[in-house]
Computed example of a mutant assay.
Amino acid sequence: MLQDALASAGYPERILVACSGGPDSLALASVAAYFARRGHVHGRPVSVAAVVVDHQLQEGSAEVAARTVAILEGLGLSPVQLRTVEVAATGFGPEAAARDARHAALEAAATELDCGAILLGHTLDDQAEQVLLGLARGSGTRSLAGMRPARGKLLRPFLGLRRAETLEICEVEELETWHDPSNADPAFARSRTRVEVMPLLEDKLGPGVAESLARTAAILQQDADFLEHLAAESYAGLVNRSDDGVWLPEDRLRELSPALRFRVIAKAAADVGGQQPGYGRLQAVEGLLRRQGSAGPVQLPGSVSVYRVSLSELERGAAAGGTAVPREGGGCGKLVFRHQRSPQQ
């Protein structure tokens, strides 16, 4: 599995293993250490470094991190970095905030150590839980597609491996593993899914539920990639730029299928500095296209405003050096996206 992951990344000569001290990432570190001792993968030279990220969210986290560093050094990985991060509060929950802080630390370590890939220990069980959470939240194709085996420098070689198998690897290698208490904390939806929901599904529906969910993710990844490609092409052909935003022609946008139209709208929001809109916000923008209610604005996450104006209004606003004001009327034919920046910006 690791060989295939490195092959897909072009066989980087130096790789970085992210390790928490848990069985999944320790098993991955152990496998990577085997190839580090050999000095090559499929005849291609390779060396392996490691990084341990201390999120400082639990009592005793520093001790766990230090012990994990010692284990990784004992496996022969070099160098092994310990990075301590501050997890800032965000509007997306503690798990997302911790993930953002961790990924920033991993990227910084990879850059400093000149590593072409970062290995993460997510397993098939993690993938199944991700898909199930996406279903429960009513998410779209991209979310249900789960975690990618490769995204930029991030590689997940163990997505086809069960969690029980990583435990077996650690037992065979006699590695002392740490079990994160938050993984069993019912305060987190992911923990409840792992401890309560997945075992119930396996009991009531029979074995193989996790594999089926992971297979669903693999299928949907292909669908999501195809739709993303079509949406990128459509957006490139529709977008028009102004000094303070972008606009899309209403008639041509309306001609797109809903699956593409929603994605194109999301791309316009991202293009001016916004965040991924939820389904409800996308429907609100759809209402502008259907000319339901006012001409806007509709507020999207990340301080983005969307409204309809006519081409003549846009031209008058540009000629006057100002911003056109949306109004009702049959002449409205453009969907405008602007970022509402703070005064000091």
Rank of each mutant, 00 (worst) to 15 (best):
I118C: 02
A88P: 05
A136S: 10
R151C: 06
Q127Y: 04
R99F: 02
A96Q: 12
V85H: 07
E107N: 13
A96V: 14
D100V: 08
L82V: 09
T123R: 05
A108I: 12
A164S: 14
M147P: 00
T141M: 02
A105F: 03
G140S: 04
L113G: 07
A101R: 03
R148K: 13
L144T: 00
S78M: 07
R162T: 05
M147G: 00
A104I: 11
E129D: 01
E112N: 11
A110N: 09
E86Q: 15
A136F: 09
E165S: 11
V87W: 02
E129C: 03
F158Y: 10
G93K: 11
E95S: 09
G140A: 04
A128D: 00
E86L: 15
P79D: 10
R142M: 01
L124Q: 05
P157R: 01
A88L: 15
H103L: 14
A110G: 13
D126K: 02
A101D: 09
E129T: 01
V85F: 10
S78F: 10
A109C: 14
T111K: 14
C115H: 02
K153E: 11
H122G: 01
A150D: 04
A97E: 12
L161H: 06
A104N: 14
T111I: 09
A105I: 11
G93R: 13
V80Q: 02
L159R: 06
R156A: 09
A104M: 12
D114H: 15
E107M: 14
R83C: 12
H103G: 04
A128T: 02
L161A: 07
E86W: 12
G134A: 01
R99V: 10
L77Q: 04
S139M: 03
R142W: 02
A98Y: 10
L133R: 01
S143P: 00
L155I: 13
E129Q: 15
V85Y: 07
A145G: 13
A101I: 08
D114C: 13
G146R: 05
T141P: 01
L113R: 09
P79V: 11
P149R: 11
L144W: 00
R162W: 04
A150G: 09
A109Q: 03
L82G: 06
A110R: 07
P94Q: 09
E107H: 11
L155S: 06
L113T: 10
L119F: 03
P94H: 11
S78T: 15
V87D: 12
G116M: 05
G93M: 12
A98V: 12
R83E: 13
D125L: 05
L132Y: 00
Q81R: 15
R137V: 04
V80F: 05
P79E: 10
K153V: 15
D126V: 04
C115Q: 05
L135M: 08
A110L: 10
A145P: 04
R156S: 03
H103T: 08
E165V: 07
L154T: 08
T84F: 06
F158R: 01
R162Y: 09
E86G: 11
G146I: 06
A88I: 12
